[in-house]
Design a protein around this nucleic acid. Structure first.
Lengths: 228, 228
DNA sequence: ATTGACGGATTGTTGAACAATCCCTCATTC
DNA sequence: GAATGAGGGATTGTTCAACAATCCGTCAAT
């Protein structure tokens, strides 16, 4: 017991004060991008951002490098750094990738016997959050819950790399929505889909869940492509 | 025709002189890491590497940031940058991710009608290269061909993000092999598996291909786990 | 309308400097 | 011998200043 407690303390300490300034700046910028405060296409001036955040240009450049690999920023040689703007090819590719990740995660979850317990509860919670938010007319929250739903589907695979890939995919999708005129209309139609997919998963019918998810992807991708 | 020629010239020019020094340094380091000249656990001193490559520490730090997200390097705050050393959890997670990526890519390829033509030829070519290399006793080349085989399986999905994820996964696997005493023994047993998987894919029997691939993953993961 | 020149703003990189941190060595204590 | 603490050197993380190169907008000339 003592050894476990000391380990926890060690892990706590590891997460405090171990972040570099570059890492922290990247966190701040990431939040601004994913929350739509920095819109796709926006140019991030080293001078301005550096002054605003009180860090040197070199440190900021390190932070930029951290974020370009997350595909949130795009680095154009000699022209600067921009919040990424996704085009229809990006959307197509994102959905191809999602099909592989999320369907594979459900299958993997079934193989590992994880379509139950806490992983399943996370999926359920996201569905319920979305339904509640829709009933309250909070479309922003519906969108957030929808993303949580998909992140939870990915988490059925119990894989750090899948979780991370899902996180990046969903961050990119946020960029797509931020560039849209009326993104709210995008999420509501799929609440019933989410509920159905969840129920298949909960019933252990993973192949049905996969089929329902694929149908959702087809519809969502088509709707998104039409909106860009 | 003229417009096409001008476009090609434009693309050529875009690939010349558009790389930053940080990007180039990252390329050099990436090659050293993936080719085993910098072994897992090796510490990369800013002073030494900067002097050797003739770049400033700031530029080198940018390059390091580029490579940490590719999971080739690991950045330890206040301690420096190291070539990543993978542990058994990493291997487990890599194989989980591969199952999802590669099996999903075969399925996606089938849906898109791509288990034919050039994508299939790339798979066949990698199998043949491996068999030729094994006949010549060139185990290094067998290993390389094996990686090409799996990259080609991923490419069946026709997705840039899948290709990229596969590329990263295979780079990480190289790190695992570089840390092994006798990695050659790892690739040869699977030549027949590769041939069988290829033949299922070529016959359009994607579910059989997936089953054979999963069996391969189970065996390869077990062998690798035992070797770490 | 097109082209070329110019200038200002910005990026990319370098190098120096300094504070903070880490790690190794050595001395001291039990 | 093992554990602890101090000291010092090496290195990292960051800042700053400087400069060359590049880009882009503006203006003048054709």
């Amino acid at each position: 017991m003592t050894a476990e407690w000391v380990e926890e303390l060690g892990a706590e300490r590891a997460s405090l004060g171990r972040a570099s300034t570059a890492g922290r700046v990247a966190d701040v910028l990431r939040a601004h991008v994913t929350q739509g405060r920095l819109l796709p296409g926006t140019r991030l001036s080293e001078e301005e951002i550096g002054a605003a955040l009180g860090v040197s240009r070199n440190t900021l450049r390190e932070a930029f490098r951290l974020l370009t690999h997350e595909r949130l920023l795009t680095h154009e040689f000699n022209r600067g750094v921009f919040v990424r703007r996704l085009d229809s090819d990006d959307v197509r590719d994102l959905y191809a990738f999602r099909r592989i990740l999320e369907c594979g995660a459900i299958r993997r979850g079934a193989t590992l016997g994880r379509l139950t317990g806490e992983p399943l509860d996370d999926v359920r919670r996201a569905v319920e959050t979305g339904e509640r938010a829709a009933a309250a007319g909070d479309w922003n929250e519906v969108g957030t819950a929808n993303m949580e739903f998909h992140q939870a589907l990915g988490a059925l695979a119990d894989s750090q790399r899948v979780d991370e890939a899902m996180s990046h995919v969903l961050a990119e999708l946020r960029l797509v929505f931020h560039a849209m005129a009326a993104p709210e209309a995008f999420h509501q139609p799929y609440l019933e889909d989410n509920r159905r997919i969840f129920e298949f998963v909960a019933a252990g019918s993973h192949e049905e869940a996969v089929a329902a998810l694929l149908a959702y992807f087809d519809a969502a991708e088509a709707q998104l492509a039409a909106a860009i």
